[in-house]
């Protein structure tokens, strides 16, 4: 294959520069700042900071409730990713089969992704409200069965569903594109050999969809760790009794509301390392099973 490249490196540098500047300004610079703050005690209004070495990390990692927060984040990540990927895949397969009305459906499915997380949170807060929303009818049929205000597991389920709902649209687009790029001839050949719909799906479509699946998985897990705060903030505020206190929400709470910049910075570094580690594991162990065509 022939490679096209610029002979004039200056033009190339110039073209890449805007992107690099953005990455440095909004990613590397804040990360470096957070790293520095994590090892100091920073006074919010400026006016100096003291170097404390690993004290912030020791305090955080020695806190059993912080480990609970990590655990809650992992539960949320697994729950919302499984749900979001599963639902998106099912819906994409239906849309790909061109059942009646699939064109409207295709566009409608993309919309939820354009809704801001706090808005999703508000909508679901109403839906799941034990005293006002749709779940009220369930509570009338089976009294006291649904009360996320006091029941931590139910609150978690509620947050997972809202988070997954928002993510389904994004996944759907990728799955549908992936399915449509599978050559029709392969599926037709399978059909002529007598394979039924489910068989074709299992032996042809899903294996060929593996690269898309892997991509969506990585994005979803990362996203569930970093982008879940808007939903938690509007739906549960981390409660009841820390049941939905995700790591990213705790960072927001400590840093942006409580002005504990150093503690929040240290937590950000821990979260960043966790996400890097998870992504590494995915590339190392799951990507092996993916065959790119």
């Amino acid at each position: 294959m022939r490679r096209a490249y610029y002979k004039n490196n200056w033009i190339a540098a110039l073209l890449v520069a805007p992107q690099l500047i953005i990455v440095f300004t909004f990613f590397y610079f804040p990360t470096a700042q957070a790293l520095y703050w994590a090892f100091t005690l920073e006074q919010p209004w400026g006016g100096g900071n003291t170097w404390v070495g690993f004290d912030n990390f020791k305090a955080i990692l020695g806190d059993s409730l912080y480990w609970a927060s990590i655990w809650v984040s992992i539960v949320y990540a697994i729950g919302s990713t499984t749900l979001a990927v599963g639902m998106a895949l099912t819906l994409a397969i239906f849309a790909d089969r061109q059942l009646s009305g699939y064109k409207v459906y295709k566009i409608g499915m993309i919309w939820p992704y354009a809704i801001a997380a706090p808005a999703v949170g508000l909508a679901f807060r109403f839906i799941f409200s034990p005293g006002a929303g749709i779940m009220m009818f369930v509570n009338q049929m089976f009294p006291e069965i649904w009360n996320p205000v006091e029941n931590g597991n139910q609150a978690m389920a509620m947050v997972i569903i809202a988070g997954a709902w928002k993510q389904v649209a994004y996944n759907f687009i990728f799955f549908l594109a992936g399915l449509q790029s599978i050559p029709r001839s392969l599926i037709e050949a399978g059909a002529m050999d007598g394979a039924r719909v489910l068989r074709r799906m299992r032996d042809i479509q899903l294996p060929l969809l593996a690269p898309t699946f892997f991509f969506v998985l990585v994005i979803n897990i990362t996203d569930s760790f970093t982008d879940s705060f808007g939903i938690v903030d509007t739906m549960t505020a981390g409660g009841p009794s820390r049941a939905t206190n995700l790591m990213v929400y705790k960072i927001f709470n400590d840093g942006f509301q409580g002005l504990d910049y150093s503690g929040a910075a240290a937590q950000s570094i821990i979260l960043m390392l966790l996400v890097i580690a998870l992504t590494f594991v995915q590339f190392r162990y799951i990507e092996r099973k993916v065959h790119y065509t």
């Binding site: 981390g238 409660g239 009841p240 409580g258």
Partner: peptide, 13 residues
């Protein structure tokens, strides 16, 4: 602020 959040979590519990 953080103390108030801790209080709330503990009271909920």
């Amino acid at each position: 602020i953080q103390h108030r959040a801790e209080w709330l979590s503990e009271v909920q519990a």
